[in-house]
């Protein structure tokens, strides 16, 4: 809504108006570390797998289940499992309203400007936690995502 001296009040595109008056949008981006207990996460996954195997022992797919479990423990990566858990939790809770994208290229999850990923060597964060970043304009969404991430990871402590 633009109000100039001597001109009628009118609606204009925000970007165009900012350019006219020489003002720039300033982007504020937050990136926080959500710590989780990797040992407890692994234990929870092992327990879940153990339960699945026990249940599966009565089914015809027992051999297949055991081979999958073997691969799981050989290539254990807590961050990848944490991301997987978070992805499932996000899809279940907000996936019907907002597009939750799992980027396999850099192993991250994106929901609008919210990005969840594991820390790399370039990051200034210590390892052992997921990084959640977002533009301030998506603060409300980020708050919801953070609570889902907290619940998903704390349920495995």
């Amino acid at each position: 809504l633009v109000m100039d001296d001597g001109k009628p009040i009118r609606l204009e595109d925000a970007d165009e108006v900012l350019e006219k008056v020489g003002m720039a949008n300033h982007k504020v981006r937050f990136e926080v570390r959500k710590a989780y207990n990797a040992t407890a996460l692994r234990r929870a996954v092992e327990d879940a797998e153990s339960n699945e195997l026990q249940q599966g022992s009565t089914s015809m797919d027992t051999d297949k289940d055991e081979s999958q479990a073997g691969d799981l423990y050989q290539e254990w990566d807590s961050d990848r499992f944490a991301l997987k858990l978070v992805h499932i939790a996000l899809q279940r809770s907000i996936g019907k309203q907002i597009k939750v994208v799992r980027e396999l290229e850099d192993d991250s999850i994106e929901i609008r400007s919210v990005k969840i990923r594991a820390p790399t060597d370039k990051d200034e964060f210590e390892r052992g936690g997921l990084l959640v970043g977002w533009d301030y304009r998506d603060e409300d969404l980020a708050t919801r995502v953070l609570s889902i991430v907290t619940l998903a990871l704390s349920a495995n402590r």
Binding site: V28, F30, E31
Partner: peptide, 28 residues
């Protein structure tokens, strides 16, 4: 530990989630 990076058109705040709510107000 926390880091705030200021650039001409953007500000990036890197911190632990436990102190995010404290930092938000002074930054904005």
């Amino acid at each position: 530990a926390a880091t705030i990076i200021l650039r001409e058109k953007e500000t990036i705040v890197k911190c632990d989630d436990t102190i995010r709510s404290l930092l938000r107000e002074p930054i904005l």
